[in-house]
Computed example of a mutant assay.
Amino acid sequence: MTLPSRRGNTGGMTDRPVVLCIGAVLWDVIGRAPLHLRLGSDVPGRIVRLPGGVAMNIAMTLARFGLRPELLTVVGRDPEGEELLARAAALGCGTDFAYRSEDLPTDRYMAIEGAGGLVAAIADAHSLEQAGGRILAPLSDGRLATEAAPWAGPVALDGNLTEQLLAEIAASPLFAAADLRVAPASPGKAERLLALLGHPRATLYVNLEEAGLLCHDRFEDAATAARALVERGAARALVTDGGRTASEATADRCLTAHPPEVLVTRVTGAGDTFMAAHVASELAGRAPQEALERALTAAAAYVSGDTPT
């Protein structure tokens, strides 16, 4: 895959982001306890606040792999937003094209995780939803691309975008040449991706539950789910199933791989890490099977706590 570049007004080559990450950039507030939790549990644990959101998680992982992610998102002009963008820049994520809102607050996500994994979560991404297509302005006004010269590199799309905006992206000439990599924000938002299911340049990254929601079916394994997504119109689908086999399917192949066995210490952001590591591996020229295996290894290192947040 050829990395995108562009000539500036001076005629010389300008540095360009390699991957656009479009979607949620927010503060994660996560409570973790090393116990199995039930409704009403009140237990000791740790509470952390760190940069998060699907687009941000993907961008941070891409930066760790030495790539140049650029964030297209909305961040408020509040103290939380200023701190968030400063942290993002320090982590190697481009923030020059983020839409800064005077009247929308910086989004937040809150989750509780126990020994059995995610217990519950609430995503307050209302500012992203209200900003809508304003976050895409750099792709049409010449700062990154125009309709006549659309962005031709990889784009990570976040299912936190509204169903309407995702449908517009699916039909937009601004994305006609892009390598679209699409991830749902959660099973509750998986069906927002239906508009992109038949896009010829889109790769879907979903877990087994999300694949079932998109296909209105239930699957016992990732390979069956990945093939079903392709039959439903996906150009390519990657399906994960926690610590079980993951699969990648296209019209002419279906690959499988097993993730390393690790002790799970966190889960929020694991799917985003898998997707980003897979994109980075393919951009580095890895073969499909190796790219799948490297992505699973990166996700396993993340959930085990070996990868820094």
Rank of each mutant, 00 (worst) to 15 (best):
L3R: 15
S5F: 15
G12H: 14
D15Y: 08
G23K: 03
L35N: 00
R38T: 13
S41T: 04
V43W: 02
I47S: 02
V75G: 06
G76D: 11
G76C: 08
R77P: 05
A89F: 00
C93T: 10
Y99M: 10
P105Y: 04
M110I: 09
A115M: 04
G132D: 11
L139I: 12
L139M: 10
G142E: 09
L144N: 05
L144F: 07
A145R: 10
A145M: 08
A149G: 05
A149Y: 11
P150T: 10
A152E: 14
A152R: 14
V155Q: 05
L157Q: 08
D158T: 08
T162Q: 02
E163P: 00
E163N: 01
I169M: 11
A176P: 04
A178W: 05
S186G: 07
E191A: 13
L194N: 08
A195G: 09
L196M: 06
H199Q: 05
R201W: 01
A202I: 09
T203E: 15
V206W: 09
V206P: 08
V206R: 09
E209D: 12
R218W: 07
D221L: 04
A225G: 02
E231V: 09
R232E: 11
R244S: 11
S247W: 00
T250I: 02
A251L: 13
D252K: 01
H258F: 01
E261A: 15
E261Q: 14
V264A: 14
V264F: 00
S281D: 10
G285W: 03
A291Y: 10
L296G: 10
L296N: 03
A299P: 05
A299R: 13
T309H: 10
